Amino acid sequence: MNKTILVSIRQLFFTAATLLLATNAMAAPQLQPPEIEVEKITRNLLDLYDKNEEKYRKDREGFVQEVDRMLSPVVAFDQIARYVMGKYTRRSPGQVDKFETTFKDSLLRFYSNALLALDDTSLTIESVDKTPEKQLKEYIAGDISRIPVKMSVRTSTRSVDIFYSMVHTDGRWKLRNITIDGINIAKQFQTQFADAVDRYGKVETVVANWAEIMQGKDIKAGK
Rank of each mutant, 00 (worst) to 15 (best):
Ala81Gln: 05
Glu37Trp: 00
Glu37Thr: 09
Lys87Asp: 12
Phe99Trp: 00
Lys55Met: 13
Lys55Asn: 12
Lys98Ile: 03
Ala22Ser: 13
Thr102Pro: 09
Gln65Glu: 07
Ser106His: 00
Lys51Tyr: 03
Glu66Arg: 14
Met26Ser: 06
Lys130His: 14
Glu37Val: 01
Asn113Tyr: 15
Pro34His: 15
Ile125Ser: 04
Arg90Phe: 14
Arg43Ser: 06
Leu118Asn: 12
Gln65Gly: 00
Tyr111His: 07
Thr89Lys: 02
Leu48Ala: 08
Tyr88Phe: 06
Leu118Val: 15
Tyr139Val: 05
Val128Trp: 04
Ala25Glu: 01
Thr23Tyr: 02
Leu136Gln: 03
Gln32Pro: 11
Met26Arg: 05
Arg91Ile: 13
Leu20Ser: 12
Leu136Trp: 02
Lys104Pro: 06
Glu133Pro: 03
Lys55Arg: 15
Ile144Arg: 01
Ile36Leu: 11
Thr101Leu: 11
Glu39Phe: 07
Gln32Gly: 14
Pro29Ala: 05
Val84Ala: 08
Pro33Thr: 04
Lys51Trp: 02
Val84Ser: 05
Asp119Glu: 11
Glu66Ala: 01
Arg43Ala: 05
Glu138Thr: 11
Gln135Val: 14
Thr23Gln: 05
Ala114Gln: 12
Leu107Gln: 04
Leu136Asn: 03
Thr102Trp: 06
Leu48Pro: 05
Thr131Gln: 02
Leu19Met: 12
Gln30Lys: 14
Phe99Asn: 01
Asp120Ser: 11
Ile140Ala: 13
Ser92His: 04
Ile125Thr: 08
Leu108Val: 04
Tyr56Lys: 05
Val67Asn: 03
Thr23Met: 03
Leu116Tyr: 10
Lys98Phe: 08
Leu31Ala: 11
Ala141Ile: 08
